[in-house]
Amino acid sequence: MINFNYLRVSTTKGAVDAIVRDSAAQWIAGGTNLIDLMKKGVMSPQKLVDINNLPLKEIKKEGNKLVIGALALNSAVADNELVRKEQPLLSLALQAGASAQLRNMATVGGNMMQRTRCPYFYNPDMPCNKREPGTGCGALKGFNRMHAIFGASDKCIAVHPSDMSIALVALDSTVLVSGPKGDRRIPFQNFHRLPGDLPQKDNTLERGELIVAVEIPDNKLNKNVHYLKVRDRASYAFALVSVAAAVDLQGDTIKDVRLAMGGVAHKPWRLMEAELFLKGKPASEANFREAAALAMKDAKGYGHNNFKLKLAPNTLVEALKTATGKG
């Protein structure tokens, strides 16, 4: 048996120390991703540091920010009154993810940290640079229907699978982390990274840095929102393409807008250019289409996923139409 030690900690400092002390240790929260990866032999930490007892479950208002603890459950966040009232986009994105059972276990921090679902990553005897740098990318010339159309490299074309993170990046969130060198704030945009030459690195966390909370600044984006997830079945499937759209609509005019896409890149894909284009313009299908065209500028297909070049802009238009009720 691959034995591992188990340690339960109850303070942030304890959690950080335990990881810093032991290079083969890893935090476990809901365990819904890590345990699967351990069973598959993709990851084999020798020590699990259970962080579920840390007091990081709270969802509260701090000044003009909504602060969500890293250990708040996906279901608790989705159902939370404050979240539903002030940041409904987040609630919608969470509800589109996984299943009710999984959402009852999964945490905010774990969700951000979940690994890609690329089948080559998941199968230890297939090539994968993310799992085993230097073995090649199995998906590049393999079956890549689920894979990236933005920002990929020839080392890795995997996508980040989180739905929640698509909403968080759209909402200009900030990730609060605590590490051996102290506390740090990371804009959500910069939290996940593109694969480049280091596909084994999913994000910009340093070793020993624990996510303690996510902050969402106040906005006027709680009326016209939609999270549209296109997938292979009605529920319990990862996104082929998903779009988080939140619009501050005044009359017919788009005062403010946030757009992000899932299932298309190694990180939650914020669509700044499309946002910029739409700001101040009337909400119309023609404008949505133009924004979508801008959003797709640098997209590239790898064969099986070429359909996403059509699906992504159409999903964006559809999400905007539903969010605004226009077009």
Partner: peptide
């Protein structure tokens, strides 16, 4: 009959 086939 999946999305990719219908779209293409």
């Amino acid at each position: 009959i999946t999305q990719d086939k219908l779209l293409e």
